[in-house]
Simulated scan of single mutants.
Amino acid sequence: MILVFGSLNIDLVAKVPIIPGSGRTVLAPSYQTHFGGKGANQAVAAARIAGPRQVQMAGRVGRDAFGDGAIANLRSNDVDTALVVRADEPTGCAFITVDEAGENAITVASGANMTANAGDLPAVLFGADTVLVLQMEVPFAQALAAARRTRSASGTVIWNLAPVPEKMTREMVTELLAATDYLIVNEHEALDGAAAIGVNASDYETAAAELAKTGNLTCIVTAGAQGALAVTSDGTRLRAPAPRVTPVDTTGAGDTFAGAFAAMIHERVPLQTALKVGCEAAARKCLTPGAQAGMPMRAQIPSLA
């Protein structure tokens, strides 16, 4: 089973000519509403590759219409929502601007996500076949508790170090690495993670190698058009190219990679194959606006068709 413990949001997306900097205002003709949250995104991406009854989402939403919609959306994507709990806080919301090149800037109001609790996860979920997927949009202590329970049951932990916390301490990163089997980062997150443990890396490959060595894990770096890099704890490096596409919206591409990668790890395929499938899924997602709408089904992945 793939268990995703993380955030559920509603995304409000506006297309703008340029992403505004400090003190600037830009006008957008309209906006769109999409389902999001890194946890929910990764659950949907995984379910579309793994198939029905393979993915369970755990997290919290508000007692509001946004929460109703978030749960219904997950169910429509064959994600089990039995562990999505209603909270008194409002459902999380993300405000996203997308420029003409398809790049984005995101502000997240966490809401109910900050009440997520690992205590909501029953012991029966944890076993050797469990693949737990984590991010950084719910309380760190709760995500860490879920990771440790999974490792204690001989399960596998995939942790996406995103978004990087403003105050990320050495202790936090050290604890995260010790409880993780596969760490997924982008180029900037790799450098930030390495810096937190005292490594002043000049490039993301060096940073990934240090993170892998320190945590005795495999570090995966998603590098956009450059594809993905995996560095194992012994320094072995594997690469997968990114298919060439003209992006419409990159929102959710990293989450698509993480979900597809988790589905492949759950199927126990070779690491090289998992990287390739993740890159193919992320590239296809970029052809459609919104975080989840373009996430591909298994039959749409060239390596799996």
Rank of each mutant, 00 (worst) to 15 (best):
L3S: 10
G6E: 02
G6K: 02
S7C: 14
S7K: 12
L8V: 11
L8K: 01
K15H: 15
P20D: 04
G21W: 03
R24K: 13
R24L: 14
R24V: 14
T25N: 05
V26N: 08
S30R: 13
S30W: 05
G37K: 08
A40P: 10
N41C: 11
Q42G: 10
A46T: 13
A47Y: 09
I49E: 09
I49A: 15
A50W: 06
G51F: 08
R53G: 12
M57S: 00
G59M: 02
R60F: 11
A65S: 15
D68N: 15
A70G: 02
N73C: 10
N73M: 12
L74C: 08
D78H: 12
V79S: 11
T81I: 10
T81M: 13
V85K: 15
E89C: 00
G92L: 08
I96S: 11
I96E: 03
N104Q: 06
N104W: 01
M114Q: 13
N117R: 14
A118P: 12
L121A: 14
P122S: 12
V124F: 13
F126L: 10
T130I: 09
M136D: 00
P139E: 04
P139D: 09
Q142K: 05
L144M: 05
A145L: 13
A147S: 12
R148H: 15
R149V: 09
S152C: 07
G155K: 06
A162T: 07
V164T: 14
V164R: 00
P165C: 05
P165A: 04
M168V: 12
T169Q: 06
T169M: 09
V173P: 01
T174R: 08
E175C: 12
L177M: 04
L177S: 07
L177I: 02
D181R: 00
V185I: 11
H188M: 07
E189P: 02
E189H: 06
A195T: 07
G198S: 09
A201T: 03
A201G: 05
A209T: 11
L211W: 03
L211F: 04
A212F: 05
K213E: 06
T214L: 06
G215C: 05
G215V: 09
A223L: 13
G224N: 01
Q226W: 04
A228V: 01
L229H: 00
S233M: 13
R237C: 12
R239Q: 15
A240V: 04
A240S: 15
P241E: 02
P241Y: 03
A242H: 06
R244M: 12
R244F: 02
T250F: 02
A253T: 03
D255Q: 02
F261C: 06
H266G: 09
L271G: 08
T273K: 12
T273Q: 11
T273W: 01
A274K: 00
K276L: 14
E280I: 01
A281T: 13
L287S: 05
G290L: 11
A291W: 01
Q292F: 06
A293Y: 01
G294K: 00
G294W: 06
G294I: 04
M297E: 10
A299V: 15
Q300A: 15
Q300L: 13
I301F: 12
